[in-house]
Design a protein around this nucleic acid. Structure first.
Lengths: 165, 165
DNA sequence: TATTGTTATACTCTATAACTATA
DNA sequence: TATAGTTATAGAGTATAACAATA
């Protein structure tokens, strides 16, 4: 993957990565939030895979584990809803966590259909270890930004999420 | 997918969507840029699929078409590099555009290995039509943000991209 | 030897429909 | 009838390795 690191003469009109010294015009992509969001997320995902996974948890799994940790005994569908995961896709993910010994699944005594999820000690350890690696990884990707800028970024991303009715 | 629209009492510690009036704690996810980037991109992708695609082009294809339009006769690998697409994955994408009659693929007279890519008239039309739909879609997702804020957002996303060495 | 385009392949994420068992 | 969990399946994106043709 090539980054926009060696851009020869970056102007509002001419952008993008170049290898031979010739700039490539991005056209309308230059001003589209969607394009930049897509690229930034791709970089984040790639760096996450390299720097956090093995032995850390994948981004989805870390999300699930985090929500369970912060809401002990929460049920599966509720976790899925908070994280925007389809119930159907949740099954394999929770299976994975249970198989790894990180999560316990118990029938809700108050509702025979529901499963209450809890972290095991190994689950807490995996969450902590992954979080430490994530902190490193975010620090690197956000290098050159202030805490204020990160807060602004999160706020703007949240607004996009909120507008996605 | 549930959004953070009906949060009962959003505090820095308690966040996330709720359906029955009970807030769910996101734990460490709350302050992680990666989490918010992931969710915002998911919303964007979903809204893009709903509002732009059919008859508009997919986000990847629109990117390719935009770069070809702005750099007539550019070769395939160069487009892939600018957009962060693997050469191997580029093949099927260009095949798709050629099959749709939007792109012409011609052997570079100066280099028998390379293909020069050009838009057809239909390609230009598809690009324009897709762009119009994208403008609508971005307007909706960025509702409530100023032009300045959008510029800040793009700048911060670009910085993440640049840090992804 | 390096590069362009290619094939094959595999994994993850996502989305939908339909089933079961409980409520 | 509505909901929790499940199964099956399909599509899209992404990643790597290896090959042919050309430079």
């Amino acid at each position: 993957m090539v980054r926009a690191a060696t851009i020869p003469a970056q102007t509002p009109e001419s952008d993008g990565a170049a290898d031979d010294g010739q700039a490539v015009n991005l056209g309308p992509l230059h001003g589209l939030v969607g394009y930049h969001l897509r690229r930034a997320f791709a970089v984040l995902r790639s760096d996450y895979a390299r720097a956090v996974e093995a032995p850390g948890l994948r981004q989805v799994l870390f999300g699930i584990v985090s929500v369970i940790a912060a809401n002990d005994g929460i049920n599966q569908t509720r976790v899925a809803r908070v994280l925007g995961i389809q119930r159907a896709n949740m099954v394999a993910l929770v299976n994975e966590l249970v198989a790894m010994g990180l999560v316990l699944r118990a029938v809700d005594p108050a509702d025979g259909r529901a499963f209450l999820l809890t972290l095991t000690a190994a689950g807490e350890a995996a969450r902590d270890a992954t979080l430490a690696r994530i902190d490193c990884h975010e620090q690197r990707l956000l290098n050159g930004t202030t805490a204020d800028e990160r807060a602004v970024l999160i706020g703007l991303l949240d607004r996009i999420q909120a507008n996605g009715a």
